[in-house]
Simulated scan of single mutants.
Amino acid sequence: MPELLQPSSNIWRTERADEFAIIIDADNYFAATRAAMTSAQKSIFLVGWDFDASITLGRPGEQYDGPSHVGDFLLWLTRKNPELEIRLLLWNPGFLSSWAKVANLPYLLRWKFHRQITVLLDGNHPVGSSHHQKILVIDDAIAFCGGIDVSAGRWDTRQHLDNDPLRKRPNGTSYGPWHDASSLCSGPAAKALGDLCRARWKLAGGEQLAPVNCQRDLSSVEGAISFGSVILGISRTTPAFADQESVSEIERLYVDMIMSAERTIYAESQYFASF
């Protein structure tokens, strides 16, 4: 239903994805993001609500090319490719800042003075609100966007076993099953998500960044549900803050989709709330 997508109303813009797929649960998601970042040529842009440098980016206990923990993995990528630039944009919740996490502290000085890694904390939001985007863009050619943070307590398999011995936080404590999903796209849609990351970066106090021009082939992703080449609509939510106007494209799109339904509505969410 292309007529459902209305720029300046319920979407920011439409772009073609050369490939679009859904990735369910962090077992497949972490493996896919690790593989994509390993082959990065020029740029890795990670936007997150939360981040934990000590987690395993992949299935715990497996052997990988490079360090298993994501903090060491990012440093390894820069040593492997001196031309690679890595940027992390994380939500800044004041005194609960990701910078203050004990797990992240060993990496802070190395990132702070690292030529190829830059971290910004985004506090450009009203008190009591948060930035909740989870986006990973690689070379402006491959992008992941969805609900999974690169953080502790997210990894799980599709089985969601009650007592999976691999499902542990970095400190060794276990946690319950965790279900979540993300998406993967390539081509112009991935570049559009790169543009979104660059706009967030600038608003957070970073420099104006130029797009990356890099040709990439998308490798197959285990467990991904592929839709092939499609036109994607990209929607945002932005609070009114300072001289920034509010944007409610996601809410508008949800309402428009529900109102246009003819036979079936399926909704899956961690939270349902009524205000």
Rank of each mutant, 00 (worst) to 15 (best):
L74A: 10
F20M: 08
V150M: 10
I231T: 15
S43Q: 13
V221C: 13
L203W: 04
K134E: 01
G176P: 10
F241A: 02
A40Q: 02
I225Y: 05
H114E: 03
G147W: 02
D122I: 07
S235I: 04
I250F: 03
F275I: 07
Q159Y: 01
L77D: 03
L121W: 03
R87F: 01
A152C: 01
E15R: 13
I250Y: 05
I258S: 07
D139F: 05
T118G: 00
A143V: 07
S219L: 14
Q244Y: 00
F272T: 12
I138S: 03
K134Q: 08
N124E: 08
R110L: 11
L193A: 05
G147C: 11
L218G: 09
K134L: 06
L4M: 09
E3I: 02
M1F: 12
E222S: 12
S235A: 15
A199F: 00
I138N: 02
S54C: 03
E62D: 14
P211D: 15
R154P: 00
R167K: 13
S68D: 15
S43K: 11
N10A: 03
A267Q: 12
S98G: 14
A240T: 09
W201C: 08
W91H: 14
R169K: 14
P126D: 04
L46A: 08
S183E: 02
L184S: 05
W49Y: 15
S8N: 13
R200K: 12
W155N: 02
L57K: 01
N92C: 04
W201P: 08
H160F: 11
R216Y: 01
I23G: 02
G58N: 05
I44H: 07
G58L: 09
W111D: 02
I23H: 07
E262M: 10
Q6E: 15
D140I: 06
A190N: 09
L196Q: 09
G71E: 06
G153Y: 04
R263T: 13
I138C: 03
S39T: 13
L74S: 05
D140P: 04
H179S: 15
A189V: 06
I44P: 05
G61V: 06
L4A: 09
A141T: 03
S98W: 00
A267D: 03
L4P: 08
N171T: 05
E19V: 11
F275G: 05
S174D: 11
R79Q: 15
A36E: 10
H179I: 13
A192N: 00
S43Y: 00
D139Y: 04
D52F: 00
G172K: 10
Q116Y: 00
R198D: 03
L88E: 05
P211M: 07
K134R: 14
A35D: 12
G223F: 08
M37R: 10
L5C: 06
Y29F: 15
R13I: 11
P170H: 09
A189Q: 08
L121H: 10
S182A: 14
A36N: 01
